[in-house]
């Protein structure tokens, strides 16, 4: 319990650090949002009025204190480019990113586990070489290159999946919640669920392929170690098949470290959504982040980075707590 409370306290401190860094970095980064808005005939007074309007006229410290006070009250400010409450905008887009990231994580785990088990079963045979080569390739190619390759392969050469967006525009505007996939599955809207899933295929693969390679490699290593343990040897002597040895005996013990690593890698996967969402015109937080940066929409960029930061911190906290829960030695300090 104390460990958990300590971690939560650390989380608050880290999050505060994130706010400071984000605020200062954005203010010292090149690009003045007011300069991007001024009309051709604007006078010095007009420019000053714009600064006042967007709260950019005070000193850095004054601006930070005002922003922090508002933030503590749950006010992220008003987006300069969208003319809307930044928190409301983030709340609208976050579910799309979470859905994409969680599905990608699931696919990465499925693919990674499959490859690891296949590689273990084919140990010292051509199958293992094939699995190792495949995971090497999947790991070597970054997610945005996978995205472009998938666009050309499944978007143009074999146009099987939609290239952009989250849902066919003809079906849009009918959802009650921002969790399209979940809602369509729960409410049994088969056509909508199919369409959302089809739109997810390529961005999910782009994100999942590199992560699945990591999962496969770590798990395959752990399986190799487990496969030479006494309990596995005993089971083999008893006549258990290789398939059952791997999936029933070795996997159970090898899965712990892999899941811990996956938790950490999930945060990188979240980071990867930024560019992948851009390529597939997927309306998530990452896509909006790029636009906010281009437009120097400071309230929105600050809010998005803060939310991403909070997600990273919470994910790591959950991973640590899960590991501690699974491992009694860590749980007791």
């Amino acid at each position: 319990m104390t460990t958990a409370l300590n971690r939560v306290a650390m989380m608050v401190v880290t999050l505060f650090g994130v706010t400071v860094v984000v605020f200062v970095l954005l203010r010292v980064a090149p690009g003045d949002p007011v300069a991007m808005m001024i009309g051709p005939g604007a006078s010095a007074a007009d420019i000053l009025a714009l600064r006042v309007r967007y709260g950019l006229d005070g000193s850095l410290l004054t601006q930070f204190i005002i922003w922090l006070k508002a933030l503590l009250g749950g006010d992220f400010g008003t987006s300069i480019s969208f003319h809307r409450n930044a928190l409301a905008l983030i709340a609208e887009r976050l579910p799309a990113t979470l859905e994409l990231a969680v599905v990608a994580l699931g696919v990465a785990l499925l693919l990674g586990f499959t490859l690891a088990v296949a590689g273990t079963l084919a140990q010292r045979r051509i199958g293992e070489v094939a699995v190792d080569s495949l995971t090497g390739l999947m790991l070597a190619v970054p997610d945005f290159v996978w995205a472009l390759a998938l666009v050309l392969l499944f978007g143009v050469a074999l146009p099987l999946f939609p290239l952009s967006g989250r849902i066919d525009p003809s079906l849009g505007g009918t959802f009650r919640t921002p969790f399209y996939l979940l809602e369509s599955l729960v409410t049994g809207q088969a056509a909508a669920a199919r369409d959302v899933a089809a739109h997810l295929v390529m961005p999910v693969l782009a994100l999942a392929l590199p992560l699945s390679a990591i999962v496969a490699r770590v798990l395959k290593g752990a399986l190799a170690e487990a496969m030479v343990q006494d309990y596995v040897l005993l089971a083999r002597v008893k006549g258990m098949s290789e398939w059952r040895l791997v999936t029933r005996e070795a996997l159970r013990n090898a899965v712990g470290p892999t899941l811990a690593l996956t938790g950490v890698q999930f945060t990188f996967l979240l980071g990867g959504t930024v560019i992948v969402e851009r390529i597939f015109a997927y309306p998530g937080l990452g896509n909006m982040a790029i636009e906010a940066v281009i437009n120097r929409d400071l309230p929105l960029v600050q809010g998005i980075v803060l939310v991403f930061g909070a997600l990273f911190i919470v994910t790591n906290l959950l991973v640590d707590l899960a590991i501690a829960a699974l491992n009694p030695r860590l749980r007791h300090g």
Binding site: P159, L163, G165, S170
Partner: peptide, 22 residues
């Protein structure tokens, strides 16, 4: 009757959109 603007900011993806017939 209907006009849909898809916001495809990546030029490669826009070329793929038209080439694929989407």
């Amino acid at each position: 009757e209907t006009v849909v603007f898809k916001f495809v900011t990546d030029a490669t993806s826009r070329a793929a959109e038209i080439e694929s017939g989407s």
